[in-house]
Design a binder for these strands. Structure first.
Lengths: 219, 219
DNA sequence: CTTTGTATTAACCATCTGGTTAAACTATAT
DNA sequence: ATATAGTTTAACCAGATGGTTAATACAAAG
């Protein structure tokens, strides 16, 4: 019955052999189970099994299911909501920035295929909690980029579209294919390799389309 | 202990007063609860409460949770996957068809805000079952429209983009905003009325953008 | 070797949850 | 009226699930 508040600060465990520590294994297993099954679908026993430990040890390291979920979800959203300040503040052209943004975003999702649906589901199912727990520091992330698009495009007298629409169009085309992957594959018959190549093409196609939509003469 | 197989064929219940029948109330409640909480998050008791009946009556009308879910989900997907044959076979121009498609799709989602996430979540969480149970008859729905775009665009020698990308772009921009609604509202500060107006604008903006992407000179 | 504090486990518990049972109710037809 | 067949309910059950407890293994420090 140690005081868990003290324990969690200490974290003295050394990885015996080359196997990751129990805590690390729990986090890994929890991420996998939560991402694939969702909060309500995930079973603590499944996480324990996958981490190769006793269920009680879960509650030793993480007070309860909600806390464990929060850790995973906070980490997931920090990945999902991209650090775009770097891209914004670069000296690249707007075109280049858009391309970089899409590319970075798509690559991130290729590495975390279940992440978009995971984050979006939680934001929909428990919006109040989502806002309170996970939105605080990220409030202006998207807005900044939208403003950047707006100002830079106005500078060139080419603005043809509400930057809000432009931005939403862009992230829609980037993110949605990952959420719709199974249905899309059923519809088209694409296998995983073909889907992967198809997605790679979109890294160029999406910025092209977005840039074109900026130019008045096109519409 | 009546034979439920016979019972379900008969359906003689008359709506006493003007209150909907218990079965109808169950379906209504089930749709609401399943759509907002998902399969694993939904509780049979919640559905019973919301329908104003005893939990046992749920199992009287619908053998078990899975069966009830299937009824709701099958109905939901029949709405989600649009009947586009009518639009395809019309004599409208491609432009008009695209516009009609987006408009119809967006209107449907305005009336069923939780539907997209509901269907897409299920397709992701249990792809095998989704395919087996709900995909059978709808296999070529999307493909047909994609082919339509391809052939008609080639006819005009304007084809500039893989029709698969074009189609995916279109449905991404139509559907994604509804899935991302809570996050989008947090980011932009839009209230529900503003969001509704914003979405209305997209009924024109999306087809415009898609049509522009067809024209070679624009890219 | 013993002490001490952490890591880990088996067994347990309370509650939740999907599902069942048998009895009671209601309307309709004879 | 009463027989019949569908409808609705209260009470119940078994298993799943999140969470707890108390005892044990283990490693480092004295």
């Amino acid at each position: 019955m140690v005081n868990s508040k003290i324990k969690t600060k200490i974290k003295t465990k050394i990885t015996t052999g080359n196997r990751p520590s129990a805590e690390a294994r729990i986090l890994l297993a929890a991420r996998h189970v939560f991402m694939t099954k969702g909060m309500s679908g995930a079973r603590m026993q499944d996480i324990a099994d996958e981490a190769g430990i006793n269920k009680a040890l879960l509650h030793y390291y993480f007070k309860n299911k909600e806390r464990l979920f929060d850790v995973i979800f906070r980490d997931a959203s920090s990945v999902f909501f991209p650090k775009i300040t770097g891209i914004i503040e670069s000296t690249d052209t707007l075109e280049k920035k858009l391309e970089k943004f899409c590319c970075a975003y798509i690559d991130m999702m290729l590495q975390n295929p279940f992440l978009p649906l995971f984050v979006l589901t939680e934001a929909n199912k428990r919006p109040a909690e989502f806002r309170k727990k996970f939105w605080r520091t990220r409030e202006q992330v998207f807005q900044k980029f939208a403003e950047e698009i707006s100002t830079e495009a106005e500078k060139k007298k080419e603005l043809n579209i509400n930057p809000a629409h432009l931005f939403l169009n862009m992230i829609s085309m980037c993110i949605f294919p990952f959420i719709a992957k199974p249905i899309w594959q059923m519809s088209t018959g694409m296998n995983d390799k073909e889907f992967r190549e198809f997605i790679d093409e979109r890294k160029k196609i999406i910025p092209q389309l977005i840039i074109a939509s900026l130019k008045k003469k096109c519409l």
